[in-house]
Design a protein around this nucleic acid. Structure first.
Length: 514
RNA sequence: GUCCCCAUAGUCUAACGGAUAGGACACCGGGUUUUCAUCCCGGCGAUGGGGGUUCGAUUCCCCCUGGGGGCACCA
């Protein structure tokens, strides 16, 4: 028998990290077993379901490469795959249950139910439905109906019995039907509830293995009852551990970003996300960390899925993303980085050959510093903006040393003599200059770095200077010189500069004259 | 409250009932580098508690504790 599994998100929000992990395990299971992976949209909550969420979920799954074999947009022989298009199916099966007296109409109002529930909780009783509408006579029903009451359909939990969930991960889990209580299968507006729609669709879509979050384990006995009453064969179950937030409660918005869209926007690579998530609750004997797609499919089996919940560690995800960025070749990386540059307004829709070359080179230079793709923005402003800001601390600590003014002048002079500013050429000039002035190389490199980039950190000085080009480098040195003139104007008006290095022998720059 | 699930370092995890309890992230130290990052080397750090079973328990059983989830006309 061919394995058929499904991912059945409800479009009441963005695709969630936890949902994605469930989708991933299903997908891996299907691919590993050469079975089918089915996508079904559970949009029976008419109030909260939104079409744009459906679109977004579908879009994100595609982005991640978790492609389904049957489902929205591609169809399949067990469709439709949107629950909102399957209403007649649920109605028909609910009618059958009514006819067989396995279900009954319930006229209780939501407010009544809520009140009763609270009472029972106060009395420290399990808050189950009390069965008020279970034994209504035909007459009573008619009169309620005449009052215009729209009933819900409630499933009758008849016999007291032990329900056994055969879970592939946890073994046999037993439940007592007494703890269940009659539950609604069709709401008064005619839409099915989760337990009902889920069972009906899984059965009709020939789902063989239900792989889903641990939080559904306690729903399973109700579903088992439905399978039996409907005359369907129950599937195999695998309840995988949930993903928790830092405080070990169910991962939710208050733990920070949980939507796949967010990670996509930030610049996480789809496979990094998948690789990281695969390791949350699953592992190989040797604790292998990195997997190619083929490897993961080949190695993934349910029997190596852990039973205990896992805390989502965004730091490790970030590390893994950085690892994958480093493994990306520079042309691919450039392509990945371009949308971020575009969004920032640093490049336009059309990119000419020269700009493209520059982006490729910058990607290469910054590669080791990127943890997420959007980091490119804060790292490379000096490559794209003429008037990038200078870091105050760096200016204070390094640029304002009194030997720097004359040093920068000399560097500028040397550069002006070059035909073309090349990486090697600049290095030679600066090293020679350092030797001549009896300065350590650092003393020469650092001030120039700040003049060119505004900060102490970044790619190799010679490399980045070559990207900037001769003219721009000179312009930036001038900018720094002007700044020093202004600053020292202030200094000569009272404050004394804290003593400089002594070597270098430069005279203090002239006071500003404006 | 009740039912169910879970329990190895801060985090993710490995370990036929038999190793100094292994790996990864984070953290700390050192080295390489013009800086940052990368890279390399090293370090810190765990079987929740109590009972059994056994020659021997991380591993099997029971109790306790702790955490989580369900008990909706949400999914």
């Amino acid at each position: 028998m061919q394995a058929r599994v499904r991912f059945a998100p409800s479009p009441t929000g963005e695709l969630h990290i936890g949902g994605l992990r469930t989708a991933l395990f299903n997908w891996l299971f299907a691919r590993h077993n050469k079975g089918k992976f089915i996508l079904r949209i559970e949009n029976t909550d008419t109030l909260r379901s939104r079409e744009d969420f459906t679109k977004s979920i579908i879009d994100n799954l595609k982005w991640l490469g978790l492609i389904w074999d049957e489902g929205p947009q591609i169809g399949g022989e067990y469709g439709p795959y949107l629950q909102s298009e399957r209403l007649p199916v649920y109605k028909r099966l609910a009618d059958n249950l009514l006819k067989e007296e396995k279900a009954y109409f319930c006229y209780c109002l939501p407010e009544e139910l809520e009140q009763r529930k609270q009472k029972m909780q106060k009395a420290k009783l399990p808050p189950l439905y009390n069965g008020r509408c279970r034994y209504l006579s035909e007459k009573e029903r008619k009169s309620l109906e005449n009052e215009g009451m729209k009933p819900a359909v409630r499933f009758k939990v008849l016999q007291e019995c032990e329900l056994r969930v055969k879970d592939l991960l946890r073994g046999e889990v037993k439940f007592d039907s007494k703890t269940l209580g009659d539950f609604i299968i069709l709401k008064s507006d005619g839409t099915p509830t989760f337990n009902f729609a889920n069972v009906v669709d899984d059965a009709l879509m020939r789902i063989t293995h239900v792989i889903r979050g641990d939080d559904h384990l306690s729903n399973t006995p109700r579903q088992l009852l439905l399978y039996q009453s409907l005359g369907f064969k129950e599937p195999f179950y695998a309840h995988i551990p949930m993903i928790l937030g830092k405080d070990a409660s169910k991962l939710s918005k208050r733990h920070g970003a949980t939507s796949v869209s967010y990670y996509r926007k930030e610049g996480y690579l789809p496979w990094a996300l998948i690789n990281y998530l695969a390791l949350l609750g699953w592992s190989t004997v040797d604790s292998q960390q990195f997997f190619t797609r083929e490897e993961l499919i080949q190695k993934f089996t349910l029997d190596r899925v852990n039973k205990s919940p896992a805390i989502f560690d965004s730091q490790k995800l970030e590390w893994m993303n950085a690892e994958y960025i480093r493994k990306t070749n520079i042309h691919e990386l450039a392509e990945l980085v371009i949308p971020h540059l575009r969004e920032r307004g640093w490049v336009g829709e059309k990119i000419d050959a020269l700009t493209y070359k520059k982006i490729v080179r910058i990607s290469e230079l910054e590669k080791d510093r990127l943890r997420v793709l959007s980091d490119i923005i804060k790292l490379t402003d000096f490559f794209f903006e003429k008037d990038f800001p200078l870091d105050d601390k760096s200016v204070e600590k390094t640029l304002k040393k009194d030997y720097v003014y004359s040093l920068l002048k000399k560097i500028k002079h040397e550069i002006e003599k070059m035909d073309l500013l090349t990486q090697d050429g600049l290095e030679e000039i600066l090293r020679r200059l350092a030797e001549k002035l009896n300065l350590s190389t650092g003393k020469v490199f650092h001030p120039l770095r700040i003049a060119l980039t505004g900060r102490m950190t970044g790619p190799g000085l010679f490399e980045l200077a070559e990207v900037l080009g001769k003219e721009e480098v000179i312009r930036r040195i001038d900018r720094a010189l002007k700044l020093l003139i202004k600053e020292s104007g202030g200094l000569s008006n009272g404050r004394t500069p804290d003593s400089g290095s002594g070597s270098g022998g430069s005279s203090p720059p002239p006071p500003a004259t404006h």
